[in-house]
Every structure is written in C-alpha cells, then in structure tokens.
Amino acid sequence: MQGFRLLSPAVTARRLIGILLAINALLLGVGAVIVPSSAREQGKGVHVGLVFDIGGKNDKSFNEAAWRGLMRAQAELGVETRFIEPTEGSDRESALRTLATKKFDLIIGVGFIFGPDLERLARQFPDVKFAGIDYSPSEGVGTLPNLAGLRFREHEGSFLVGAIAGLVTRTKVVGFVGGMKIPLIHKFEVGYAAGVHRVCPACRVVAAYAGTEPKAFADPSLGQELAAAQYGQGADIIFHASGKTGDGVFAAARQRGARAIGVDSDQFDAAPCCVVTSMVKRVDVAVVDIVKDVIAGKFRGGIHELGLAEHGVGFVADERNRSMLPIDVVEKVNALAEQIIAGKIRVPSE
C-alpha cells in the first residue's frame, strides 16, 4: 500500500474533485467537437417503433432479422423508425410504453415473451397499433383489434428441409435437435419428420430436445452431445431448431465431417463444410408486411400466419451451398413447395 502512490500527497480530496470536473468538462467538449451533432428530428409520416428481446439487435438470428426488416421499411417505405433494446425483462413493458406515449403508429415486440405486455398496452392505448412476432394470446384473452400476432408456419419450412434431408441421406437415418420442449418447437419436428417420410418412407427420424427451460436455447455443449449421439446412431444429417444450442450441433458436424441444417436465418457461415441448407423464418418479411398494412390502412388485429405462400418461411439454395445441395434436389423440393401452396399437401403441425 505504501509503495504505490497514484497521486502526489499534495492532491487533496477537494483538488481531486476539481481535477475530475475538469476532465469531465474536457471529455464533453472533445465529444461535442469531434462527433458531429446528430439530433433526431421527428419527421412526418408513419412512425414505427420496435422493441427487441433480451438478445438484442445483433443476435445473428431472430432479432437481427427483425432489425433488417425495420431498416428495409425505412429505406423502401419511407417510414420513421425507432428501436429500443431492453437491458432486462422489466424494461420490455416500459420500452413499449415509452413508444406508445410518443404516439407511434405501430409498435412491434420481437418474441413470444412480449405476449402479456403487448396485451396490457393494447388495451391501454386503443389508438396505437401493436404487433408481436410469434405472439400467441394468453389464457382468456381474445382477439384485440389493435394487436396483431405475426406467426410463421414453421412446419411448412421444416417440411421442405425434411424433404431435403430425406433426399440427401445415405444412411436412411436423419436427426432433429430441438431447444426448449414447447409446442412452438414441436411444430418444427413434426413438419420435418413429415417431409422426410414424404420422400423417403423407409427413413428413420431420431429426435432429441435440450431441455424444458429457456436455457435450452443457449446450451451449445449439450447441443454437441445430443448431435454426437445422433450421428453415433447412424444419422448423417441433423436439423436443429435450438437457437444458440445449435452451435454445438454445428461443432459436432464439423468434427465428424457430417451434415447439418440451420434454422431461422442462413447459418451457412457457422460451418461452411457442413451446413447443407437452413430453414429460414423471414421475420424481416413479416415486419415489412405489417408496416405496409399500416400505411395502406389495412391493419387488422388477430393472428397473421405467414407460410410458404406468404414467403414467410423457406430454405436457402444459392451458389454457396450448391455443392452440398444438388440442383435436382432443389427442383424436387420446390415442386413440393408448389403443392403445399396449392393446398395439395397438408403439412401436420402437431
């Protein structure tokens, strides 16, 4: 303690306070000089606010897709946008409320967790329109005229990647790794299995879930164990619907040179050796569509489902994954997609 002196003994507490005040003034001054003023002006036109889930706008997945949608709405539709990234759960509601009191026309909550908050606010602010990604009504809450639930027919997209898995498998065994065991994720498994069996009735689907709590979406080491077990059982391709847990699935695939299928957004970059395709959930399309509805005065409350016909779900086929996903497979799967859109194939969801 005695050997190290940060400040000379002449510096008293009073002087130190003075020095710190001067440093702060200097920092504020420097900031004002080197960073150009970027005052936000309230423009005219439609105002769209968006509140992210805890993951935040750079989560490389769901929230980021919503962010892209918001930016596209800003660029293409000319709306005024504002977003809030809550730092904790209790900020979700206050973030929504802050936007609602500022007379925003449309406020979007990203994620099923916003459900009860959106319902409360939609009742309190009947003049403001709200939309929730993956929203489903709570018990005893009916349809609210100013609250739209934007949901996806994930089972349709999962059906298509299931068909891909069924077409490219050599072992006739394919895997599925889910995150939290809830109906939302079960839909992925059911659609996937139906797709596999459609093109390969003899194929076997092995499925596993990472758990029953939210952490199941953020447990890569468990994901790796589950995937390794499925590859060990003879599966040569695994589809995951498990958020960050899927990183472990990709790690297992890389280790064995086996194949995997990504989810939500194009996950090719996670393992360029192994990601055959990804089942994409176009949250950005949902955001842009609902903004268009508001501009056109066609907004309506209740559940909006986006499936293949609405371009809400799909799979990735581009030059990057061409070597793993031959063109004839893509053609066969696109033909199946046509049949789903035409209503000739009904994809089960439970």
């Binding site: 005040l21 702060n24 920092l27 003023s37």
Partner: peptide, 25 residues
C-alpha cells in the same frame, strides 16, 4: 462517493467516445 461518481462519469464518457458518440449528447 463524489470522486467515485465523477470518475465513473469520466469513464462512461470515454466509453461513449470509443463507441463514436458525443458524451454530452
């Protein structure tokens, strides 16, 4: 407490400058 607080504001301001924002704003 005052010294700690002023130092925190200064550190916070530096972080904001690093993030490319004017701390005053």
């Amino acid at each position: 407490a005052v010294i700690g607080l002023l130092a925190s504001i200064a550190i916070g301001s530096v972080l904001m400058l690093i993030a490319g924002k004017a701390p005053g704003q």
